[in-house]
Simulated scan of single mutants.
Amino acid sequence: MQTLIEKRVFGEQFGTTEVCIATELGLVVVSVSADQVGEFSLSYKGAVSSVAVTAERVAISTPDGVYTASTDGEEYGEFANQFPSESVAVGFGSTGLFTADSDGVVSRINSDGSVTSLGDTAGVRSIDPPLIAAADSVYRISGDELIEAGLSDVNDVSGIGTPFAATTDGLYTLGNGWMETLDGPFSLVASDGHERAHAVGEDGLFVGVNDVWDAEPFPVDEPISAIAHGSGIVAAVTASGRLCINAGDGWRHQLLGLKRPTSIAVAHGDEISVD
Rank of each mutant, 00 (worst) to 15 (best):
I233C: 07
F218R: 13
E222W: 06
G208D: 04
I227P: 01
A236G: 04
D211G: 00
A197S: 15
N210S: 12
I224G: 01
T238N: 11
I245Q: 01
R242E: 10
E222H: 05
V207P: 00
R242L: 09
N246A: 12
V237T: 02
A199F: 03
I224H: 02
A235P: 00
A199V: 00
G201V: 08
F206G: 00
S225D: 12
A226C: 09
I233P: 00
D203Y: 14
P217L: 02
E216A: 11
A228R: 06
C244M: 10
A215M: 10
E216G: 02
S231P: 00
R196V: 14
F218A: 11
G208C: 04
D203W: 15
D203H: 15
N246H: 07
V212T: 12
L205V: 07
N246V: 07
L205K: 14
V200W: 12
P217F: 06
L205Q: 10
G230D: 03
N246C: 07
A215N: 05
D221E: 15
N246Y: 05
E222R: 06
A235S: 05
A247W: 03
H198R: 11
N246P: 02
A239I: 09
A199K: 08
P223E: 12
D211R: 04
V207F: 02
R196M: 15
W213A: 02
E222L: 13
G201T: 05
V209D: 08
D214H: 06
A236R: 05
V207K: 15
V212Q: 13
W213Q: 01
T238S: 11
L205M: 12
P223D: 13
A215F: 14
V220G: 08
A239E: 13
G204W: 12
A236F: 03
G201E: 04
V200K: 11
A239K: 08
P223N: 11
A228K: 06
V220E: 13
H198T: 02
E216R: 13
D214P: 00
D221T: 11
E202G: 01
G204I: 08
